[in-house]
Simulated scan of single mutants.
Amino acid sequence: MEQNEELMTSTEAALHEYKMGLGMFTQKMPDIATHYNAFTEACFKEGNLSKKEKHLIALGIAINTQDEYCIIYHAKGCLDNEASEEEILEAVGVTAAFGGGAAMSQAVTLVQECIQELNQLKQ
């Protein structure tokens, strides 16, 4: 672990780990990474749904599939696109209605931790 990683919050460390992994994958498989990144960028462009709404949807899917890296990434996407904590938690509630206890457990732990840590980084 790099020295500066020791000072990171768990959310920052996970985002850093994801970016490092994606960077290594991109070096090894540039064609796939380029096309995948272009596809996801197109999916999250402002359209009939706002970027905020798209990240709220993605957060719900990530919670339901128990994908911790995507939960963190899209919680950050929600906040970066000015979703309020209430909007995020309302989306979490809808997800829990479909995903039950497993979705709720991610919401009451990881999602709330992300909101707290990412909001502290903005200050």
Rank of each mutant, 00 (worst) to 15 (best):
Q3C: 10
I61H: 03
E85N: 05
H55L: 09
V108A: 03
A62S: 15
G21S: 07
Y69F: 14
N64F: 11
E68N: 08
E5R: 02
A83C: 13
F98C: 05
L79I: 15
Q123D: 04
G21N: 13
L22N: 06
E82Q: 07
S50G: 11
E113T: 10
H35C: 06
I71W: 04
Q120N: 05
F44M: 15
A14Q: 06
I72M: 12
E41R: 06
T11L: 04
F39L: 14
E87P: 01
L110Y: 04
E87G: 02
A38T: 11
A107Y: 08
I63V: 15
L89M: 13
K76F: 13
L121S: 12
C70R: 10
T34Q: 09
M20T: 12
A62E: 05
M104L: 11
I72F: 11
A38M: 13
M8N: 01
E5G: 04
Q66N: 13
G47N: 07
L59D: 03
N48G: 13
K54G: 10
A97Y: 07
H74S: 02
A42I: 03
A107C: 13
D67W: 14
Q123Y: 03
E6D: 08
V94T: 08
Q106N: 09
A62M: 11
E87I: 11
Q27Y: 03
N64S: 05
Y69M: 11
G101Y: 01
E87R: 02
I115C: 00
N119K: 14
G77Q: 08
E12V: 10
V94C: 04
E17Y: 14
G60V: 13
C70Y: 13
V92A: 14
L118Y: 07
Y69A: 11
I115T: 01
E12C: 05
Q66L: 15
A103C: 04
M8P: 01
A13V: 13
Q66H: 12
L15R: 03
L121G: 04
I88L: 08
G100R: 06
K28Q: 09
